[in-house]
Design a protein around this nucleic acid. Sequence first.
DNA 1: CCCTGATTCGC
DNA 2: GCGAATCAGG
Length: 180
Amino acid sequence: MEVSLSWTDERVDLLRRLWEDGQSASKIAAQLGGVTRNAVIGKVHRLGLAGRVKPVAGTPATTRKRSMRESEPEAASVTEIAAEAPEPIAITSHRPAPDFPPVPPAAIVDAVPLAVSQRVTIMDLRESMCRWPMGDPTTPEFRFCGGRSITGLPYCTHHAQIAYQPAAERKRDRRVAGLR
DNA sequence: CCCTGATTCGC
DNA sequence: GCGAATCAGG
């Protein structure tokens, strides 16, 4: 049967946690899988938990940009008033985020479909590079994927999908290598 | 150029 | 309700 990747309770719940945890929409999308960051943002708004980082009133960033598609010179009202409103929200100090699986299960490490990457040694590994382990870490032949990693995550988009498969989907969802 | 979230609107 | 396209900004 086809598991339609929609906003199930589980996925919405995960979305909530990650968002409130300060994760960016693109990272959340990468971990959810099957959705774009736009989808995530859209959902976040629909859930009513948007406006995470609220700039203090008076900040240039507060300047509301409306009328993108519509050149209608609408009088600013609700939006601006809302922007002026006091912030009851106590800014929860930056949590380094409980972070997720540091390393993928050894099981898949062996089954890694090395194909796209160039593989680098730990010497050449940079912050922006995928840390997906390839080979036996105890041997000098050990390498990392080295592909362009999602900022904030240790893996490239390809390996992130493998490492962060939602438990719900994982059991039968094998679309690992087939995204856009 | 990389990224961020915000908004609109056709579906 | 959903999310691509778009916008605005860092």
